[in-house]
Amino acid sequence: MMLIDTLAQGLLLGGLYALFAAGLSLVFGIMRLVNLAHGDLIILGAYLILTITTATGLNPFLAVLLAAPVMFGLGWFLQTHLLNRVLGADILPPLLVTFGLSVVIQNALLSGFSADSQKLAAGTIEAQSVDLGIVTLGVMPLLTFASAVAVVFALNQVFYRTALGRAFRATSDDQTTAQLMGIRPQNIFAIATGIALVVATIAALYLGTRANFDPSIGPARLLYAFEAVIIGGLGSLWGTLAGGIVIGMAQALGASINPEWQILSGHIAFVIVLLIRPRGLFPRAND
C-alpha cells in the first residue's frame, strides 16, 4: 500500500517532468538544437502568466490562454532572428547562444521582477485531493499528469496527421531534400520553437502553482528535462513522457528508502537506461 502510494506519486511527478521535457524534445527532434535556455523560458512563461493574473485578476488556467500566443510569438521571433543565424553543421554556436540567452533571461527577469519568490495562486484547488481508496492523489498533480498526456498526444497528432507535421518530419530527416520539395526549413524551425514555447507555458502553469519560482530557478529543472528526453529516445514524444515517468518513479522510490537518495535515484535510473539501451527507450530515427 505504501508502495502503491509511492509509485502513484512518482507517476504524477513524472507528468511534471514530461511537461518540462516535451518542448525540449520537440526542438531537439526537429533541428538538433540543445536549448539550454529552456528552463529559463519556462520561468519567463511563469512570470508572463503571473503578470496577466495580477493585471486582470484572471485565474492562472485562463491566463495561460492569453500567455500562450505571446510565447508562441516570442519563440518564432527568437528562432527567426537569433537561433536560425547560428544553426549549422557546428553544434557549438547554437549551444553557446542558448547559454547566453539563459543568462540574459535570468537577469532581465531579475531587474524586472526582483528576486522575490513568486507563486501562481490557483485558489482552493491547490489543496484538494481525490480519495481513490488505496491512495489519495492531489487534484493539481492529476491535472499536471493529464495535461502532459494531452500535450504529448496533441503534438503527436500534429506530427503525424498534418501537413505541418510532415514538414517537421521531412526537415528533421533530411533538410536538403526537404528544401528541394519546397519547404523552407527556417520557417519550419520558427514554428517548432513557437510550439515548444507554448508547451513551456503549460509547464510554467504547473510549476508556478506547485512551488515558488524566482528568476534564478530555471536551470535546476533543465537537467531532469534533458534526462527525460534522453531516456525516452531522441525525437520520440511518447518516449519523453515515458522518460519523465521513469525519473519521477525512480525519485519517489529512492525517497521512500531515504530522502538522501531521491535525486540520486533519478540519475541512477538514467544511467541504467543508457547502459541497457544507449539510444533510449523509443528512438525515432537512425541519426
Binding site: 505504501m2 502510494d5 509511492t6 506519486q9 512518482g10 511527478l13 511534471l16 517532468y17 506547485r210 512551488a211 530557478i217 535546476a220 531532469y224 519521477g248 525519485q251 519517489a252 525517497a255 521512500s256 531515504n258 530522502p259 538522501e260 531521491q262 535525486i263
Partner: peptide
C-alpha cells in the same frame, strides 16, 4: 526525521508518508 533531502526537490511524498 526521514533524512536529508536535496534542495529544490519536486516531491515530498516520502516525508509526508
Amino acid at each position: 526525521d526521514p533524512g536529508r533531502y536535496q534542495n529544490l526537490t519536486d516531491d515530498f511524498s516520502a516525508q509526508i508518508n
